[in-house]
Design a protein around this nucleic acid. Structure first.
Lengths: 149, 149
DNA sequence: TATTGTTATACTCTATAACTATA
DNA sequence: TATAGTTATAGAGTATAACAATA
């Protein structure tokens, strides 16, 4: 059985519940729409960091996304296997791998971002015009606040 | 973490990223504040369902929360061990357990909800007055939409 | 001695399958 | 046959510890 959070019963207006289930539902929708590209929303997040076209080590990507560097290994293994990224030792510090998007990776990034935005727009249709951007602004303000991890 | 994300490195404004990390941060804060009560935010969610004081089976609680019935077993085991809930076979259908809050469970519910609300208020302080409730309203509207699958 | 990437391992969370007792 | 609760198990997902190469 799936997690049918829209069961019959009453509204749970605890903010944590709402945030968690909204995140889960949007991730499910996005992952489903990204499958033709062979990636999921987590892969797209890593690709988005690399799309800045600045020399980036694996550790920097991991820290930007807030995940462990050991988790990054398998994630990049998959992207490299798909030909979306390359890894080269940094000439200035050979402990580091410089990770870069390939041309295919860049194309996948652009296609993936288009899909993500379309899914977000669809997800936000229950809201009135402008309320979607206000939701995003509010979340951005919360995450920019101090005492982040 | 660096702060050089001026123009070339835009913040990650993917809605899924923002929702997920906001949910994680609020859950971490809430769980930390609930520890004196011996429960976490997931326990409080189950207790909240039971606080309606309607005869409720384990399956009903699980479905309301959108979790599997097998997951509910261990959750209620812990709450029962702490003396917060009781389980009795339903006289009308002895396959079912009727789950009820004890007096201690009711006290814990009230204390827990007070803590949750205080943590939410603190979490929302970066937002202007009223924007917090608008955030909650927007999320409620999204989760009420019949758009599953 | 510290850091980056890697591997192996463990832990958490949750779901699936199978069993029981009831219906 | 079907359902509620339980148990055992498996599968993601992710973190911790140890190790090699490099600084």
């Amino acid at each position: 059985m799936s997690t049918d959070s829209s069961a019959a019963t009453p509204p749970n207006d605890a903010l944590g519940y709402l945030l968690k289930h909204a995140a889960l539902r949007l991730a499910t929708l996005t992952d489903a729409s990204l499958t033709p590209l062979g990636i999921d929303s987590k892969d797209l997040g890593a690709i988005r960091v690399l799309a800045r076209r600045e020399p980036t080590s694996q550790l920097q990507v991991a820290q930007t996304l807030g995940i462990d560097r050991t988790t990054m290994v398998a994630l990049l293994d998959a992207l490299e296997r798909q030909g979306l990224v390359t890894r080269q030792p940094d000439p200035d510090d050979r402990r580091r791998n410089l990770v870069e998007l390939t041309n295919v990776g860049t194309e996948t990034y652009e296609a993936g971002e288009a899909i993500r935005k379309a899914v977000e727009a669809e997800f936000l249709t229950p809201l009135d015009q402008g309320d979607g951007e206000q939701l995003r602004d509010a979340l951005r303000a919360l995450m920019a606040a101090p005492d982040a991890h």
